[in-house]
């Protein structure tokens, strides 16, 4: 449904272009939850903004239902079908106004089908009584769910959420993730997050980003079984969970220049890694590491 092809994007600063994300390939199918996982600063938000066409893309293409959104006429069609919920929109409800009021505003004060709103809210296990409440009276978790429900009122085909679970406690996170599973029946979802745990609980396919590049992508199950990139392997191994209590992490620091984006933190480097690393693919499992599968046999693994 949505195909991102070799996309590179960035920002203008002092009339100079700074590229932030490079050569991104990503596919979103119908009713699929796509997870974008990576540390802060890896380019996740830039990628979402580039997909929305909010920022300049220096190369590549975005194909929506077979047509490039960069071609005349197609962009507005795409914009009508894709909604991007920025990270700070989770805090952007007017605290003293009722949810009903905020929904009215969403429809530019034209009349809207209140029954539809109510039924959508109940479908997402949100008590329609919430509609009468002021945003201030909602808990953090409730507010996040309401913002997402409101985004759905426009019946998007693609819903993009930037760090939707940030700031939520475990129980609220769980409830939010459950709602997303429900929503997936109506729309495709792209979620960016640095929370390994939350993403693997719901995403169907996960793209791992590092320094502006996708370094691995696969079905969540394939990733749980086998990692092709050392960075993915590291973030799935060193998760601060009770079950990992006695695990010791010894960070690596190399001093190399160029080549692989992970070169200075990778325990498995050799001279090949200073070259440009192509993105390869084995049965739908993509990766950007020149030493796979060789590194799996290294002594320090």
């Amino acid at each position: 449904m949505l195909i991102i092809k070799n996309l590179s994007s960035g920002y203008y600063q002092d009339k100079k272009y700074h590229e932030v994300i490079k050569d991104i390939n990503l596919t979103v199918g119908e009713n699929e939850i796509i997870g974008i996982l990576g540390p802060n600063g890896s380019g996740k938000t830039t990628l979402l903004r580039a997909i929305m066409g909010e920022i300049y893309s220096s190369s590549g293409d975005i194909i929506y239902n077979g047509q490039s959104i960069f071609e005349k006429g197609n962009y507005s069609e795409f914009r009508n079908n894709a909604i991007y919920v920025k990270q700070d929109s989770f805090n952007s409800l007017k605290p003293l106004k009722s949810i009903n009021f905020q929904i009215g505003k969403l429809y530019d004060w034209k009349s809207f089908d209140e029954n539809y709103v109510k039924s959508l809210f109940s479908e997402l296990s949100l008590d329609p009584a919430i509609l009468q409440m002021k945003a201030l009276q909602l808990s953090d978790g409730m507010r996040h769910r309401v913002v997402i429900a409101m985004a759905l009122l426009k019946e998007p085909k693609i819903l993009m959420l930037d760090e939707p679970t940030t700031g939520l406690d475990s129980i609220s996170t769980y409830k939010l993730l459950k709602i997303l599973k429900e929503i997936k029946k109506k729309t495709s979802i792209i979620i960016s997050s640095n929370d390994v745990n939350a993403l693997f609980e719901i995403a169907d396919r996960i793209y791992i980003m590092y320094n502006g590049m996708v370094i691995e992508d696969a079905n969540f199950n394939d990733l749980l079984k086998c990692r092709f990139h050392p960075y993915t392997d590291m973030i799935l191994k060193y998760v601060p969970l009770y079950s990992n209590k006695n695990l010791v992490y010894r960070p690596v620091k190399n001093d190399r220049h160029g080549g692989c984006v992970f070169i200075n933190s990778c325990p498995y480097i050799n001279n090949e890694c200073e070259n440009d690393i192509p993105y390869k693919n084995i049965n739908g499992h993509g990766y950007r590491c020149i030493r796979y599968p060789g590194w799996k046999d290294d002594k320090n693994n």
């Binding site: 475990s170 129980i171 459950k178 390994v196 745990n197 693997f200 609980e201 719901i202 749980l224 998760v239």
Partner: peptide, 14 residues
């Protein structure tokens, strides 16, 4: 028990 059950864990699936 509820806190433990709902705590996110990448090996679980919702």
């Amino acid at each position: 028990k509820k806190l433990i059950e709902y705590s996110p864990d990448y090996k679980k699936r919702i």
